[in-house]
């Protein structure tokens, strides 16, 4: 009897032999879950028992229980990353399988970095904005969109109307006095 109870306490593992596993697990940050829970994105063909054995054999994490669900993705037109999706060409992205694992010991993710200078976030964001602005120029109906200068023109006009600014003619806008009018062709005999 004693041997049986000891055997029951030991982590129950399967005996499926996988020598060269060729998949990846993605650990997810789950701040709203208790720290003894960990969530993973797993391949669709992995089951709960596989994950339990994998985590024990590869990472040495004893697992109390596993919950899993498959998140079906929304139907969309054309394949992902398509800039101009082809209409009526329906496509459903592959479902995502997530598994929630209950562990004995708590685990908390490392904190998010305060600043992203090492990742050069400022340049990254600026480049992304530039790219998006550039893309909008080539979209259908881009010519009907109001120009980006519209806002500043309206501001300027408002300032003139409220007499906050005074309009001054520039040098090239002013008339130049070149003397009296002169007939060009003077020696024409009619």
């Amino acid at each position: 009897m004693a041997a049986q109870t000891v055997a029951r306490r030991a982590p129950r593992l399967g005996n499926k032999h996988v020598f060269l596993p060729n998949f990846t697990l993605t650990l997810l940050r789950t701040p709203k879950l208790p720290p003894t829970f960990a969530s993973f994105i797993v391949p669709l063909n992995l089951n709960k028992l596989d994950l339990r054995d994998y985590l024990w054999n590869c990472y040495g994490v004893p697992v109390r229980g596993v919950r899993s669900y498959i998140q079906m993705q929304k139907v969309r037109q054309d394949k992902p990353r398509e800039k101009r999706p082809f209409p009526r060409k329906w496509f459903r992205p592959r479902s995502i399988k997530k598994m929630l694992v209950e562990m004995d010991q708590p685990f908390v993710w490392p904190e998010e970095p305060k600043d992203y200078d090492l990742w050069d976030k400022v340049t990254y964001d600026a480049a992304q904005k530039e790219r998006e602005d550039n893309e909008t120029q080539y979209r259908p109906g881009a010519r009907e969109l109001p120009s980006s200068e519209r806002g500043t023109i309206a501001e300027q006009a408002k300032a003139y109307l409220e007499a906050k600014e005074k309009w001054e003619a520039k040098q090239e806008d002013q008339w130049e006095d070149v003397g009296s009018a002169v007939e060009v062709e003077q020696d024409v005999k009619i």
Binding site: L25, L27, V61, Q105, P110, E111
Partner: peptide
């Protein structure tokens, strides 16, 4: 020594 630390390259940043 938690096993899930092996999902990160370092412990101070994610």
């Amino acid at each position: 020594d938690h096993g899930l630390w092996q999902f990160f390259h370092s412990k101070d940043k994610p």
